[in-house]
Amino acid sequence: MGIEDALRKQIEAIVILTDNEYDLVLRHFEAKNYKKHQYVVQAGSSAPYDHFVSKGLLKSSFTDEDGKEHIIQFAMEDWWISDPQAYHNRLDATLNIDCLENTQALAISIDNREKLCVECQKMEYFFLKKTTAGYIALQKRILSLMSQNSEDRYRLFKELYPDLVNRLPKKLIASYLGISRETLSRLSI
């Protein structure tokens, strides 16, 4: 399945588009190719795109004043990634987004997204549903970090993202879960 087919499949899980409507959608996106270790967004710079990942794996993270990296999100095939605050508010990024694998994506600027939503109300509904799902997932993650022990967080991670367990180094999984690499090693069965 090609990159454009994957995007259409995801959109049509929420709204059905005619071929003409989908052609309109595609005119608002740009194809992007990134190399492993390349930054898509760096803290302090702009975050001009929201990326739909067709192939590859990315990581969104925040580095605190002590230089410690806190992983916010991973994004693999059929997932979206950006620095939402910077993207939607046209501010400098607070997050770094870098490629853990060579990555292909379709990217949409905020201007093109807003224009597309005016031109095709179905896409406004699609983005609303995707954003809402993202907020719900984030709320679940925060509640998990606040209320679950390390073992339960790891078990949930493996249940929700079985494909990521084998694609990510243990160090990154541990950081995402808010635990040490050593603790994760003790939990790995």
Rank of each mutant, 00 (worst) to 15 (best):
Y39G: 05
V40D: 05
V40M: 13
V41C: 08
S46E: 06
A47Y: 02
P48A: 09
P48F: 07
Y49I: 06
D50V: 04
H51E: 00
H51A: 11
F52C: 14
K55I: 10
K55V: 12
S61K: 07
F62S: 07
F62P: 12
D64G: 13
E65G: 11
G67E: 03
E69T: 09
E69N: 03
I71S: 02
F74V: 00
A75K: 02
A75E: 04
E77M: 07
D78Q: 12
W79E: 12
W79K: 07
W80V: 00
S82M: 10
S82H: 01
P84M: 11
Q85S: 12
H88W: 14
H88L: 14
H88Y: 09
N89M: 10
R90D: 08
D92C: 05
T94S: 14
T94P: 12
L95E: 07
L95C: 04
N96S: 00
D98A: 03
A105F: 04
L106E: 06
A107H: 07
I108T: 06
S109P: 06
I110K: 15
D111P: 00
R113T: 06
K115D: 13
K115S: 12
L116E: 02
C117H: 03
C117R: 02
C120R: 01
Q121R: 09
M123H: 03
F126W: 03
L128M: 09
K129C: 05
K130W: 00
A133D: 07
Y135V: 10
Y135R: 06
I136T: 06
I136E: 09
A137R: 09
A137W: 00
L138N: 12
Q139F: 04
K140C: 10
R141W: 10
R141V: 13
R141F: 09
M146W: 13
S150G: 12
